[in-house]
Design a protein around this nucleic acid. Structure first.
Lengths: 110, 110
DNA sequence: TCAAGATATATCGGCTTACGATATATTGAG
DNA sequence: CTCAATATATCGTAAGCCGATATATCTTGA
């Protein structure tokens, strides 16, 4: 799973959101690091819908502008949970190695 | 940074390794989940070298077979540290949201 | 001696994916 | 009327992973 897909799923946890709203939500929960481009957003959204991880919740017309809301499916929630655990494990594997590394270590582990 | 690059950098922490040895090391520290293909390995390795994250350590000829050892640079270590922290933060952001979520899903809990 | 498998590096084409640019449409500010 | 913001949608390009393939040596086994 790509980072963009990961954050889009995360943004949909708890409440359905529409495309443009997802962009802002992702920017917020990533601390501003991930700035989703619209060209990326709809492509990822379609792919996630095709995989059954998200689905169309409803369509609203607010002030003449169409808003298409997407919702996280049970399958999507499970996939996100698994992905979060996988990334946590990866990060920990790297951190353990980095912290356990003794430069030019002639001594043992104390 | 891709997951493959992340694991290759992690495999090089502590000791230089040669290409084929990296494949085995990555498989081990990822719990068997990441099986690096040779077609991927050398492409990623060249890219990491081009970015200054790894560099050639030495070349050995053991039993007629060439072994090209790569070493993690200071820049590579810093990049890996930052990436590990980033992934840990991403995983936590998703987990926090998921734990606060009531999985009543389509039932409409509000 | 010959064949097969493991080790080891290298390259190519195909496929998926992210991104920037662009298009369309409405509302509100100037 | 023009400009900016909101909002969805599509296209071409570039990047990156993967499977397949090629080359070469050593070991195992019939």
């Amino acid at each position: 799973m790509t980072e963009q897909a990961f954050f889009i799923l995360t943004a949909l946890v708890g409440a359905p959101r529409h495309g443009y709203g997802i962009v802002g939500e992702v920017a917020g929960l990533s601390g501003g690091r991930v700035r989703l481009k619209v060209g990326t957003l709809y492509g990822v959204l379609d792919r996630l819908a095709g995989d059954g991880l998200v689905e169309l919740d409803r369509e609203e017309v607010e002030q003449g502008r169409l808003r298409r809301y997407y919702r996280l499916t049970d399958s999507g929630g499970a996939a996100l949970t698994a992905e979060a655990q996988r990334q946590a494990a990866n990060a920990r594997a790297a951190s353990d190695r980095l912290h356990g590394w003794r430069p030019a270590g002639q001594g043992g582990v104390s």
